[in-house]
């Protein structure tokens, strides 16, 4: 535990490191000294390492989300697997402008996701309406409808930026800071 009482990061990088910590008494003690609520920490660690994202598309950023899942960036490396239904997903990436017509559907899709669930606002449109901010049909940001954990700027967001956003979300999950 650090001086201000917040959780310190203990990140398991090597294979079977968790097993080692559990078996070795010295390592276990050092781990328990660093982490405030070990059980919660371990659960969060599991959750952040297997974020399943909901594969849907709204606009340009959806194409970049596809590129993120494809060969060059390969989201599978981060335990992120695309699912076709919100009921199997932990992570919803709002990847485009939300119109007033679409807004109730987005909310419903979010409600269909089981907890714990996370939302990333990907791109300017999902943050505040973006280039369409003065349009008659655009909701000015995804956070007007659903709670958002991470905002990624860009128009459209590059896959690298999306990766950065997801790492930030994983950080947040490990720390236990949740919007929803």
């Amino acid at each position: 535990m650090s001086a201000d009482g917040s959780q310190t990061h203990v990140i398991f990088t090597k294979k079977d490191e968790l097993l080692e910590v559990a078996q070795d008494e010295k390592k276990r003690k050092s781990f328990l000294a660093k982490v405030k609520r070990p059980a919660e920490y371990l659960i969060n660690w599991g959750v952040k390492s297997s974020l399943w994202m909901y594969a849907w598309g709204l606009a340009c950023c959806a194409i970049e989300m596809m590129a993120f899942g494809a060969a060059r960036w390969d989201s599978d490396r981060y335990g992120i697997i695309a699912r076709g239904t919100p009921r199997q997903a932990d992570l919803m990436i709002v990847n485009g402008p939300i119109t007033y017509m679409m807004a109730p559907r987005v909310k419903r899709l979010f409600n269909q996701m089981p907890q714990p669930r996370y939302v990333i606002a990907m791109g300017e449109c999902a943050i505040n309406g973006g280039p369409f901010w003065d349009s008659y049909s655009i909701v000015k940001g995804a956070d007007k409808i659903i709670p958002v954990d991470v905002y990624i700027p860009g128009c459209p967001v590059n896959p690298e930026a999306l990766l950065d956003g997801i790492i930030k979300l994983q950080d947040k999950i490990l720390k236990g800071e949740l919007a929803s």
Partner: peptide, 27 residues
């Protein structure tokens, strides 16, 4: 479901300002 009203937005931008928006009909 994705109608952003680009034709109306065009009337509120200058000729040059609308250039980047015209990209976004279809990405």
């Amino acid at each position: 479901y994705q109608h952003r009203g680009l034709e109306k937005i065009a009337e509120n931008r200058t000729w040059t300002q609308y250039l980047p928006l015209s990209d976004r009909y279809c990405w």
